[in-house]
């Protein structure tokens, strides 16, 4: 990348102004591009998970073979929970999540469990252990996790009836955090 200036170093006859200008332009372009790249990387490294705006759409195929697409769930409150079987804090909240799901099932609330970088065997065992009945599926190629820019698991995103994100909870949830959030979102008006 610094070979361009070296170009001018000792070339004989002395470089023409045009050639020199070219070298300078190239050098500064490279430096500025590089700095821009670092700025972008820094911004990305410091960004937290997505917590507002339209929730990125995705389709997930559950372990049971059923599929669900987020954009088709308008009018309902959607809770998206990222988890993994190897994650002990996920276990802390698993029972509470399932309990809350059963409480709100059929009342305009959908739960989606997104199993992030996990092994199937352990994931099935986890689902059995906590008797989870809402849809759960693997995040193939970590596309969903990247779209939501998750920082780790567990992380829970709250999607309002109009498809907008209404915040995110990092780490395991405890009663009554989820209940309160769902009640709040259910109270929102949706045409």
């Amino acid at each position: 990348m610094t070979q361009a200036p070296m170009n001018e170093q000792g070339a004989q006859p002395p470089p023409t102004p045009g050639r020199k200008k070219f070298g300078v332009t190239i050098t500064f372009t490279i430096i500025l591009t590089f700095l821009a790249l670092m700025a972008w990387g820094l911004k990305r490294a410091q960004a937290g998970p997505l917590d507002k705006g339209l929730a990125p759409d995705f389709t997930i195929t559950g372990f049971d073979g059923k599929t669900v697409t987020l954009s088709e769930l308008r009018g309902q409150v959607v809770i998206i929970n990222f988890w993994a079987s190897w994650c002990p804090p996920c276990r802390e909240e698993a029972a509470y999540l399932e309990e809350t799901w059963r409480k709100y099932e059929g009342k305009g609330v959908i739960f989606i469990g997104v199993d992030w970088v996990d092994t199937e065997k352990e994931a099935f065992a986890y689902i059995d252990e906590f008797d989870i009945t809402y849809i759960n599926g693997p995040d193939i190629g970590t596309r969903i996790a990247q779209a939501y820019n998750i920082q780790g698991v567990p992380e829970t995103f709250f999607v309002a009836k109009n498809g907008e994100l209404r915040g995110v909870h990092i780490g395991p949830m405890k009663y009554p955090q989820l209940d309160e959030k769902i009640d709040e979102l259910l109270a929102e008006q949706y045409p």
Partner: peptide, 8 residues
Amino acid sequence: MMKKWNMI
């Protein structure tokens, strides 16, 4: 020789 180069 290489004075510019040293700077770089």
